[in-house]
Design a protein around this nucleic acid. Sequence first.
DNA 1: GAAAAAGATACAAACGTTTGTATTACGTTA
DNA 2: TAACGTAATACAAACGTTTGTATCTTTTTC
Lengths: 337, 337
Amino acid sequence: MTETGWKRRRVTIKDIAAAAKVDPSTVTRALQNSPRVRTATLEKIQRLAREMGYVPNMAARTLVTSRSSIIGLVLPDMTNPFFAELARGIEEEASKHSLRVLTRNTDGVEAAERDAIGFFTELKVDGLVIAMSRSSTEYFKTLETPVPVVHVNRDDLPHHVSCDRYAGSHQIVDHMLKVGHRRIALVTGPAGPAQQPKRTAYVDALHAHGIEYDPNYIFAFNGELQDTRRVVDELLALEHRPTAVFAWNDLCALGLIRHLSLRGLQVPDDISVAGHDDIAIARFMDPPLSTVHWPMYELGQESIRYLYQLRQNLPAQPPSIPSPTVRLRGSIKTLEP
Amino acid sequence: MTETGWKRRRVTIKDIAAAAKVDPSTVTRALQNSPRVRTATLEKIQRLAREMGYVPNMAARTLVTSRSSIIGLVLPDMTNPFFAELARGIEEEASKHSLRVLTRNTDGVEAAERDAIGFFTELKVDGLVIAMSRSSTEYFKTLETPVPVVHVNRDDLPHHVSCDRYAGSHQIVDHMLKVGHRRIALVTGPAGPAQQPKRTAYVDALHAHGIEYDPNYIFAFNGELQDTRRVVDELLALEHRPTAVFAWNDLCALGLIRHLSLRGLQVPDDISVAGHDDIAIARFMDPPLSTVHWPMYELGQESIRYLYQLRQNLPAQPPSIPSPTVRLRGSIKTLEP
DNA sequence: GAAAAAGATACAAACGTTTGTATTACGTTA
DNA sequence: TAACGTAATACAAACGTTTGTATCTTTTTC
């Protein structure tokens, strides 16, 4: 008749109630520090709960309150450092509000995204953070979730957290122009809300320096790292090879640098490269990557704060995130003036 | 009296029961394709459920069945590509069993780890995958979780999924020796189960080539990327500078290469570097990193399969994962013989 | 054609909380 | 000291499922 190894029943509120000779409802209230219960009783109950190793049953609680203290996070791929950073920001901030985060990857597939949203509503999450979704504006407009939703990097949707897509890109292209580059290639990524502002910034910056933009210097990158090889091939096939490239993002820049190197071109001596996002490894690349710092971690934090306000029907206004800034490191070369 | 915008009550099993003129219990059974209900009824109910937009209430289900279809994942930091890969493997495999994955980061802090485990039990997860935990063997041995636990990369614990820590390391050091290196430095990481096997493999490989290992060539790296700078400084301060370095992991290698470069040493021409883990960007580094491929994705998958067996009390034996293999790329130079 | 077997469905309790309301106990005031 | 207000606690219903058992039908068997 040994004690250990017995799969003993979990201790519930009723057990505590019995031990304290009190009604279960009183236990609940004591546990949430309600002023309705006398201090002495409250303390006794809390002590008992601790001693007996009480651990609340979330399911039961959720059933009656229909809130789960879970917030759902939908993103393309957390393996991508860019999103991983977001996830950390969200998690950190969520834990301050004692909210938990459940993450689903969608690989940018719209169906997966909708499925994830379905799952989360089923789970009665307290809120939803959706990052970089591919789904259409219409879909979200008609979507009736019983919970608040905050979108990250989707300026076109009602409740979003984002920052200036134009400014950073403009600034870094402008910088390249200022240090003497005249032929600058732009590598664009898969269609999405980030597409247009970057392109406009690029064109504008060129114009401001009296340069007409040349469509031949714009390359479409499909988002897969391997695809950078093709881009490099095309880029080097140009009659007047660009002296600088503004890459879709840092990962893209990484791939470009790699394949340029394979083709015998050193960055930045033979060609300059700028990235976007400033993922953690950017500064450890060789050469360290000059890039636009996109504050994913902070965006994550803000999205939770925003959600939190929304949740209690506060008159929440979209948080304002400072404009992204340019981080100059070693991958852009100053040309002779 | 418009329809839209009304916050209408969620449809429950009872609603369907009413609509189908049948008992709720029959609806439940129909929904889980029980043979106890007549085919005609079953189809009617399922159709109704679809039409009425029924979505099950997880909380209620969990309350009565005490299973949540959620499995908890505890890892140090999903921002780290190494663990991100694991998470994807787990998620992918879990979704095949229609299990969902909830992730918590612990930053390698033991307290955070225990808290996470507590939270997950509270949530009544169906299983727990714990990766690279710092907590002591004793803790886990005495830990009484009501759910099965699988450890990733913890060969010392009862239920684990891992692969040969010795083989890959031995192989890559052996390779460096074979191509002519004689002074090979080892960079070790923070204490953990991976520590000893790597070191032993290193020492053994040296011995096999008739070389006595020199403690001065072993460097302790604290796991923070910035710390690689110090390591490089110490390394270069050596009287007889090593011609090759076996780094703790790929990220460490990245940092080392970076700081070596800052000090004017090119990899692999001036010094060779080998990594460990083979994270996604390893092949895109400059030079592409020679490393030991550690199959985190597969380990993730296996951990779920294992968990699944454990969960139904099958006589589950730890899955066997093939030994990690060496991926030779450009970061190890062949010296003159 | 009656009894037995099987098939289909209904009943009811349970899971562990939370919360609005009812009740009791205790001071306070007139 | 009776009436009252308030503080503390108890009662009971509800949340939406699941599941063992009971009941009612239909089919099979002799």
